[in-house]
């Protein structure tokens, strides 16, 4: 049974999205990649639940293959 919440869960979707983009403003590709990696690690630790993390990774991969 999937535990990963894939229903809308962010209260202010437009605000969040814009903040995510602004985070990368003025950064080069390499620095941006570093920020993303740190962000993934921080969020993953906050979630903590190994099952949810596995499901999220699999969902991300699936989206990549489906999009290709």
């Amino acid at each position: 049974m999937a535990k990963l919440n894939t229903r809308p869960n962010i209260q202010d979707p437009d605000g969040f999205y814009s903040e995510l983009l602004m985070l990368h403003d003025g950064l080069g590709k390499a620095e941006s990649d570093r920020v993303n990696a740190r962000l993934i690690l921080l969020l993953a630790n906050h979630i903590g639940d190994r099952q949810i993390l596995t499901e999220a990774m699999q969902e991300a991969l699936k989206a990549a293959t489906e999009g290709a």
Partner: peptide
């Protein structure tokens, strides 16, 4: 990238 991110964060987190 992830290895360095872990090391970057480890000092303060």
């Amino acid at each position: 990238l992830f290895r360095d991110a872990v090391l970057d964060l480890a000092a303060s987190h």
